[in-house]
């Protein structure tokens, strides 16, 4: 129950409140969150791996077990590999988060990402039951990983905005919620008073220019995490398991990488 409560609190944003992030602290039960990440990843892995035992040729139950373990491992190993560089860059931009808090923030974003991925698990399982096409399953899974990844990035971006909020904005009073009558009545349609009365916090957030430091750190983190994540996925493959090949835990061609394979496929398409 505590486990579910922690995931719920995290998704609601209570474990990464803006006030805590501005102070540079994140009070997150790391062990519970890591466990949550493992379980959520395993749930999606189970749904993803179902394709292997259901295919006509080379059916394999072992692939289910392997994928159940590999999906959480993919996220965890990517975090382990990228964390040092991510921390260094954020420190270079004067992040308020120390190394422990940075790790906790990344773990929180990863768990949010995995929570959405796990929630798409039933849809993946349903399509796995209905689909013989290996290519379709690859496209579907890549799309779900991409959607979940984007939401995880949104979570991270919001947090980084608070982390890098300048001191003067922290000291400034919060925007007024009250509707104020503009001095010139003709100006009323153009002023934000009425709009602010409806949803002040969101509007003020939308109008605020993106913080350069937050933006740079976010861009770097996204690039590094994305590139390493893609290559990690390539190293840990197969996840779905090609129906033409027997089960293997890892593919043998360790020298290749995801990008050269992508460009080879692209070239293949046009020749």
């Amino acid at each position: 129950m505590r486990f579910l409560n922690t995931i719920d609190e995290l998704l609601r944003g209570r474990l990464t409140s803006a006030a805590d992030l501005r102070r540079g602290t994140i009070e997150i039960p790391v062990r519970t969150l890591a466990l949550a990440g493992l379980v959520l990843g395993a749930v999606y892995g189970l749904c993803m791996g179902l394709y292997a035992p259901l295919r006509a040729e080379n059916a394999s139950v072992l692939q289910v077990l392997a994928t159940t373990a590999k999906v959480p491992l993919l996220f965890l190993l990517t975090l382990v590999v990228t964390y040092p560089s991510l921390y260094v860059v954020s420190a270079l931009f004067d992040s308020r988060l120390r190394h422990g808090a940075t790790l906790r923030l990344l773990l929180a974003a990863m768990t949010a990402n995995l929570a959405l991925l796990a929630s798409l698990g039933p849809v993946t399982a349903f399509f796995t039951l209905c689909t013989e096409s290996y290519s379709f399953m690859i496209v579907l899974n890549v799309a779900f990983f991409a959607v979940a990844g984007l939401v995880g990035l949104g979570f991270l971006r919001k947090a980084l905005d608070a982390v890098f909020e300048p001191e003067e904005e922290m000291a400034a009073p919060p925007p007024s919620v009250e509707y104020s009558e503009p001095a010139d009545p003709d100006e009323s349609a153009r002023t934000s008073g009425l709009e602010a009365a409806h949803f002040p916090s969101r509007l003020s957030r939308l109008r605020r220019p993106a913080r350069p430091a937050a933006r740079r750190v976010f861009t770097f983190w996204t690039l590094v995490y994305g590139v390493v994540g893609a290559q990690m996925g390539w190293v840990l493959r197969p996840f779905i398991g090609s129906p033409e090949l027997p089960f293997v835990l890892f593919r043998a061609d360790r020298e290749s990488n995801v990008f050269s394979a992508f460009f080879r496929s692209l070239a293949h398409l046009f020749t």
Binding site: A115, S119, G121, P122, V123, V151
Partner: peptide, 18 residues
């Protein structure tokens, strides 16, 4: 409906709309 509800719940929660 049943297959899509988990995503609906998680997305609402993640976007602070719980």
């Amino acid at each position: 409906t049943a297959l899509c509800l988990p995503m609906f719940f998680v997305l609402n929660t993640l976007l602070g709309l719980r």
